[in-house]
């Protein structure tokens, strides 16, 4: 068995009286591709937010490689090598595509005062390197998009914005990637292309562990190793998609029966 990279123990997040996550136990292994599914409002996004330090859990713990990181700030979580996309796109729309991608690569930027303001030659070299990385990454996903590197994100189509968001999460070569409905609004063909690229990337980075939130069951079936089903903040099933999908409790949750 591959080592566990991420683990939560009885993780609970509540908003007032509502328990958006209730005592969730969860494990993710190196290189694993995990599908996270569940009806609307079941706490999937909340789970990502709790992992990345945006919401602070009411109780329970998060472990990364066995080290407790519960309540770590979002910056810390990024430094640990966890990146994400957002369900509702959160790009800096007035900035260029390049700027947005470079923002994602914070870890590898030099923030020295001297280099940034005075030694512009060295800054130029770093910029050139970042630009090449960004361009190479974008052109994996879409050649046309790579040509829009210097255009503001606001001029991009929704689909391209999604791609940019995925690239922003990938550019720093994270250890754990959290994708929150990245293909929302895409046609099946576009979705397939995006997933193919992701699989390709995973081949080159075999240690990368991924959690994908997705409503399209076909897709989950195709790409995920295992999946976890949430309902009302609780885990109601776990395992291979084909096993999970036949469970009565899961069907009931999706059909709204109790």
């Amino acid at each position: 068995m591959r080592p566990v990279v991420l683990k939560t123990v009885e993780l609970t997040v509540s908003f007032g009286g509502l328990k958006a996550l209730n005592c969730l136990d969860f494990e993710l292994c190196e290189g694993q591709f995990l599908g996270l599914i569940g009806p609307n409002g079941s706490g999937k996004t909340t789970f990502f937010n709790a992992l990345t330090g945006i919401y602070s859990p009411a109780s329970g713990n998060v472990f990364l490689y066995g080290e407790k990181i519960t309540g770590a700030s979002p910056n810390k979580v990024y430094d640990y090598g966890i990146t994400r996309t957002f369900q509702r796109s959160r790009l800096a729309t007035p900035l260029s595509v390049l700027d947005n991608l470079i923002i994602g690569n914070q870890r590898n930027l030099n923030f020295g005062l001297w280099q940034n303001i005075f030694d512009r030659k060295r800054f130029k070299a770093e910029l050139k390197k970042q630009t090449e990385i960004a361009e190479a990454l974008l052109s994996r996903f879409s050649r046309d998009l790579a040509a829009l590197l210097f255009k503001p994100v606001s001029s991009l189509s929704m689909i391209d914005r999604r791609r940019v968001e995925v690239c922003r999460a990938l550019i720093s070569e994270p250890k754990i990637l959290l994708l929150d409905e990245p293909s929302a609004g895409m046609t099946p063909d576009e979705t397939r292309a995006l997933m193919d690229e992701l699989q390709d990337w995973r081949k080159q980075h075999p240690l990368l562990a991924t959690i994908l939130i997705e409503h399209e069951m076909e897709l989950i079936n195709k790409v995920s190793d295992t999946c976890v089903v949430l309902n009302y903040g609780e885990k109601i099933a776990e395992g291979r998609y084909s096993d999970v999908a036949t469970k009565t409790s899961v069907r009931a949750a999706y059909l709204g029966e109790d």
Binding site: F15, G16, I54, Y55, F86
Partner: peptide
Amino acid sequence: ADRSAERV
């Protein structure tokens, strides 16, 4: 006021 988190 209760401390509500911004919805993300």
